Structures are given as C-alpha cells and as structure tokens.
Simulated assay, not measured.
Amino acid sequence: MSSHGLRIAFFGSSVVSAYWNGAATYYRGIIRALHARGHRVTFYEPDAQDRQKHRDFPVDPDWARVVVYPGEGTDGVERCLEDARGADVVVKASGVGVFDELLEARVLELKSGHTQVVFWDVDAPATLERMQKDPNDPFRALVPRYDRILTYGGGDPVVLAYKDFGARECVPIYNALDPDTHHPVEPDPRFECDLAFLGNRLPDLERRVESFFLRAAELLPDNRFLLGGNGWADRHLPSNVKHVGHVYTRDHNALNRTARTVLDISRDSMARFGFSPSTRLFEAAGAGSCIITDKWQGIELFLEPGTECLVAEDGLEVAEAVLCLTDEGVRQLGQAARRRVLAEHTYAHRAVQVEQVLGYSSDAGLSARGQVA
C-alpha cells in the first residue's frame, strides 16, 4: 500500500440523491472529506426508489467515482462486486434498499491480505433490534467475519450490542457538518414559519412527529409551522402546518436559515439508544439555526442544552420554546450552535478518525492493524 491514499469501494444507497435517502448528507460529507485527504472512493449505488430521477447532482461529483447499477437482476451488482476487487477497503453500508443480503455476504469474498472489508451501519439501532428479535437473521452469522463495524452513531450501547454479536471492533463515526455545503444564506419567503421540521414519513418516526411537531402545532394555532419531506401528502395535518414535500439538498440552507426555529426529531430506535445525532441537526447548526431537539442521551457531546440548542421532552415543551424565545435568544442559540460544530464536529474531523480506525497513516499507508489477517 502506497502513501498516496486508500482506494475505497463503497456500496451504499445513494450519494447523488437524497430522495427517500436520509443518509445522503452523511455519505457526501464523509466521502468528500476523505477525498480531500487523498483517498479515492468509488460509490456503487442502485437505480432504485426513483432516486436517479431526483438527483441533487446533474453531473457526478468530482470527489467520487459513482457507478449506478440496475435495481433489478443481479448482473449489474455482480459486475460492481468484481470491479471492487483489489480495493484497499471495501465498505458495505446498511440500507442500500436492494440486494442488501446478497451484498452483505458477497463483499466478504473480497477480503484478502491487502483488502479489509467493513460494514458501515447508518441505522445501527434498527439493525441491532432486528437481529435481537430474529435468531435466524442471516446477518448475525456475518458480523464476526467483518474486519470492523463502523456506525453512524449510537455510542457505547451500540458498540456493546455489536460486540455481543461477535463484532471484532465497532466504532461510531458520528454525523457532522460539511461547512462548504451547509452554511448561512439569505432567507427565502417559501420557508417562512415559526417552526420547521424536515424528515420523511417513516413508521418509526411518525409517532414522534405526532408527539413533538404536530402536537405543538395544535397547541399554537396562531403560529406557522412548516413540514418538509416525502410521504406526508395524504396525512391529515393541522391547518397551520404547511407541507412543502421533498426539499432538495440545495434548499436545505434556505429552509434552515428562514425558519425562526428548526425542530430535530430522532427516530424511535435512535432515541432509545441515544448518542445518535441526525444529519439534520448538523445541517441546521451549520446554517446558524435556532435548534429545538427532542431529548436523547448524549446530546451534550454535540450541542450544549440551553446555550447551543433547546431540548424538549414533548410537544408541550416544543410549543413553550416556540412561544417564549425572543429574537435575541434565537440569534444567540443559532450562533453558538454554529461555533460549536465548526470547532468540533466537521467531516474533516471525522475523516481523520476514519483513517485512524482503518489503521491508515499518510506516511506508511495501511499499518499492520489495517491489514487483513
């Protein structure tokens, strides 16, 4: 292995489209930061769930080679697996959406003396709960065969749970901010509101959206609420909630900057495990938003409650925050959040951590620790 950077083959849901794909911001931030440090990433993604019809990049980004394979029939994914052979690191991310079981087993066949294979779980609490409920889940037997497990978050509870399933090593690589992508911009009248929430309608999120967001809207009928994301069109909403549908990545800064306050809500499983800050939290902080977040263990590792964000236990506390915040309080919280994430939580910080976990140094390439036994 030379010191010119790693060749990384990455199988994930999509890096070019955030449509029904909440992990897109995370993938982009990590991969851009790795590219900036001299690593070369090929991202293999399926043509599935209409993501290619809703691309955020008309032209592929210059920080990754993107290979799109058909979402039906296995010939395309088999060609990608062969193309990935010989990479220094092969990554299978969770939640690709098609061929997940096939890929989880087949990437392990690419292991060699100079290729390590990593499972990168972008929804670890859900994966772990699924395996705990089903003794016959095929992924249970594969966990110990991966060189290491990386996760989107979860802290010690996720690490210990993965170790119980036989993981050799499990390291959380938390969400972060890409300051070149998410930053303050001019407000946009389309997104004017007192509180905004951006998230797709998913079974393990909807109940919490009802509890924290829709309940607050019902309690404050004279205030304006804005809901962005897929799947909400046929959902009955209070009359003071405006649904704007899918919000393209290019508009996230404007939404976060225009809304007086921004609500961040964890999915059920992530709230139970804690230590799982969402991509939205860092996007909003990067834009200098005044953030209200639901309560979860570990928030203070990322933003300090009371000075860099507000924490609410239910919709009543969300409503109280919306009602009681002064303009000066909104401004101070937003500025403090932005300062904190720029200082400690950018993807440049995360890329250095990924190198360390993989056993890579720019002087020596992959160390003995990074080599596959």
Rank of each mutant, 00 (worst) to 15 (best):
L6I: 11
R7K: 15
F11N: 11
F11M: 14
S14N: 13
T25Y: 07
Y26P: 07
G29F: 08
I31S: 08
L34I: 05
R37P: 02
G38D: 10
R40Q: 13
R40W: 03
V41E: 09
E45I: 11
Q49H: 07
D50W: 13
K53L: 14
F57P: 07
D62E: 12
Y69T: 05
E78C: 05
E78P: 02
D83F: 06
A84S: 09
R85L: 02
V90N: 08
V90I: 09
A93F: 13
G95F: 12
V98W: 04
F99A: 11
A105L: 11
R106L: 14
S112H: 07
G113E: 15
H114K: 14
Q116V: 02
V118A: 03
F119W: 14
W120K: 00
W120A: 07
P125W: 06
M131H: 01
Q132S: 13
D134Y: 03
R140I: 13
A141K: 13
R145G: 06
T151H: 10
T151I: 10
G155Q: 11
R168Q: 14
E169W: 07
D178N: 12
H183I: 00
P184R: 11
C193Y: 09
C193G: 08
G199I: 02
P203C: 09
A216D: 09
A217D: 05
L219T: 04
P221C: 14
D222C: 13
G229C: 08
G231D: 08
D234M: 05
N240M: 01
V244Q: 08
N256K: 03
R260T: 02
L263K: 00
I265S: 00
S269T: 04
S276V: 01
T279E: 06
C290W: 06
T293Q: 10
W296E: 13
Q297S: 10
G298F: 02
L301A: 11
F302C: 03
E304M: 04
A312K: 02
E317C: 08
E320K: 15
A321N: 08
L325K: 05
E328S: 13
Q332Y: 05
G334T: 03
L342M: 12
Y347E: 04
R350G: 08
Q356E: 12
Y360F: 10
Q371T: 05
